[in-house]
Nucleic acid binder design. Structure first.
Lengths: 202, 202
DNA sequence: GTCTATACGCTGATAGAC
DNA sequence: GTCTATCAGCGTATAGAC
């Protein structure tokens, strides 16, 4: 009599390997453009074997996203309402920039989905992300009311942090071509530090 | 004896209708995610009939891109080396913002491709776009050397204009969700005007 | 758990009637 | 020029042997 058991070490390892491969493929081709074959190859498994661990392509994608969500929202989560406003915002921005450098595939994974209308992650955006953004927008507004930073639309401020930092990951192909192979992350930290310091100074 | 003729009015109109439909579909789903059927439906034609006007899916995409290129590069082209530096950059930025509002599909069409590594437009990027960017980067550097605007990395300045303005088109799905249906373009022009004025002031 | 074989729908593209 | 019919190939997913 067979029953459900806790996943073995091998199962855990295989699932992790598959999700790593899925991140690679989904982030490069988008959901529709990615094939189970590509993911299986990247994971070093046969296609049916992969589908033994995950019931469908959709399931792989969903598992990948939900596993990534915490990591992805962590930088904003960590913005401390009790810290120094200017430093909190600047270090949040730098954390986001580091994520673009260190986790470009994760950035492109989300970018791919959102550009296409976020059909598979609209739920996450309108719950988890929205709650977090609303909360942090209130913090930003407080800081502005207290005169700690220049007054502006909090949401647009957040958008500006996201777009400026994620650009280096999401549009890397273009950045590479236009900069002749110069590493954009060499100048970006100081460039953005100056930009935001000027922008936020009351 | 049949020969090649100049396209008739009907042919021209149908090609235009197809390209309009293709823009709609490609910009939403990306090249791989779009299907010829979808485009044909959106254009009000049967699939074989569409393939009478364009030999392949690739051909539709290519025709669409090359027709769009001039329009897409026009805002940067129009930045005048002999104008007032601050005003030239600010109005370039505002033109880009208007393009995001008025032509979001065009923006997402390029965004989709670039996020996925720009496999089909890397040529265009590394020739037409690169030449234009190099030229305008020299202009920006001159302005900085003359002390007209604050000194910074010209390429990163251009990236910042692109990312901040295109964000509203490319990530519209996310922006809509997070702003509760508030129109982002209500506050964006002034927000970005202030941002760049502070950033560029020497 | 992992494989081979295969079912089956969808997609790009063509043939040929009208 | 436009249609119906159709094909070959790919892609997801399943069956069943080992």
């Amino acid at each position: 009599m067979t029953e459900k058991r806790a996943p073995t070490r091998i199962q855990k390892k295989n699932r992790a390997t598959i999700l790593e491969a899925a991140l690679e493929v989904f982030s490069q081709h988008g959901f529709r453009g990615a094939t189970v074959d590509q993911i299986a190859n990247a994971a070093g498994l046969s296609k049916p074997n992969l589908l033994y661990y995950f019931p469908s392509k959709d399931a792989i994608f969903t598992a990948l996203l939900s596993g990534l969500l915490d990591t992805w929202l962590a930088p904003l989560q960590a913005m401390d309402p009790n810290g120094d406003p200017m430093e909190e915002i600047l270090s949040y921005m730098q954390r986001k920039l580091q994520m673009s450098r260190d986790f470009p595939r994760e950035s492109r994974l989300f970018a791919n989905e959102i550009v296409q209308g976020a059909p598979r992650i609209l739920d996450i955006l309108s719950t988890d992300l929205k709650d977090l953004v609303d909360e942090k927008a209130r913090v930003l507004r407080q800081w502005m009311d207290q005169g700690k930073i220049a007054p502006m639309h909090p949401h647009h401020l957040l958008f500006s942090i996201w777009s400026l930092t994620q650009h280096y990951a999401d549009f890397d192909a273009q950045v590479q071509v236009l900069m002749d192979g110069e590493d954009p992350y060499e100048a970006a930290p100081e460039f953005l530090e100056t930009l935001f310091r000027r922008m936020l100074t009351p």
